[in-house]
């Protein structure tokens, strides 16, 4: 049953959105988020949405997949919308009942908040849908490189992240196996109250932890046997390099963010 969870939501493809350097895409997403927070009114929001729509079109990611990504945060979206709806005060209430009141400003605020969160999530999902986890890690490592000067262990963090990505499917499979094995001895993971359920997890968690430590141990030896000695002097199979399209994309991105900033200031 755990096998059904899809992890690593990368959809392989060969579009412009896939071919861009991961660093470019990370920068573009940052610019996109800045633009989104500068948006003030319908015009600017519409422009951000339009740009996102164009990007989605280019990437050939199906809209359905993007909308599915919203499901887990639906509660948060609804909650913030309701809060904004009732708590934003204006001059003339449209509707009133006891202490609850709705102003036109509240409706606007709620709509914008929903738009903002939805656009934010869709934009970042577009990044993970078009960039493989490895490229994403590579991109982050490269962008964070200057932080090494202030002794941030950038390489180690990136290595940890890519190893974690590598072992997630293995550990999920293992969880499934241990669960079946304990069920075969009559373990019951599905009934009882909260405390009983928590207790029922022990036969699953203990072996899982022991196995994870054993794997970590063996992996460390295997890595050392393949001459791993930290990030120093390390080269890469895939070297990231910016192409003309990357510069073009970044210029467009900057123009877009600046444009939204100006329009936002104008109250549009």
């Amino acid at each position: 049953m755990l096998k059904d969870i899809t992890l690593g939501q990368y959809f392989p493809g060969d579009t412009l959105a896939h071919r861009l350097d991961p660093r470019t895409k990370l920068i573009l997403v940052v610019l996109y988020i800045v633009a989104l927070f500068c948006a003030k009114y319908f015009w600017t929001y519409a422009l951000v949405a339009l740009v996102l729509a164009v990007c989605v079109r280019i990437s050939r990611v199906r809209l359905k997949a993007l909308v599915r990504g919203l499901k887990p945060v639906l509660i948060i979206i609804t909650f913030t919308a309701v809060l904004n709806l009732f708590y934003t005060k204006g001059e003339e209430p449209l509707w009133q009942w006891h202490f609850l009141s709705i102003y036109p400003e509240g409706i606007l605020a709620a709509v914008f908040m929903v738009l903002r969160i939805t656009l934010l999530i869709m934009g970042t999902f577009l990044l993970t849908y078009t960039t493989s986890p490895i490229h994403l890690t590579d991109g982050m490592e490269s962008l964070m490189n200057p932080l090494k000067k202030i002794h941030v262990p950038v390489h180690e963090l990136a290595m940890m992240m890519s190893i974690a990505l590598r072992f997630i499917p293995t550990l999920i499979e293992e969880t499934d196996k241990i669960m079946s094995a304990q069920k075969a001895r009559g373990a019951d993971f599905e009934s009882g109250n909260l405390l009983q359920r928590a207790k029922a997890m022990i036969p699953l968690l203990v072996p899982l932890f022991i196995s994870a430590f054993r794997r970590a141990d063996e992996l460390a030896v295997a890595m050392e046997c393949r001459c791993y000695h930290g990030g120093e002097g390390r080269t890469k199979l895939h070297v990231l390099h910016y192409a003309a399209r990357d510069y073009a994309a970044m210029v467009l991105g900057l123009a877009f963010a600046a444009g939204i900033f100006v329009l936002g200031r104008m109250g549009l």
Partner: peptide, 23 residues
């Protein structure tokens, strides 16, 4: 199961063997 030793979890051998019959 295959490689069943990876499912052991109790503090003693006795208690691990007793898991099934207790259930």
């Amino acid at each position: 199961f295959q490689y069943p030793e990876y499912q052991l979890f109790e503090e003693t051998v006795y208690r691990d063997i007793a898991f099934g019959p207790t259930n």
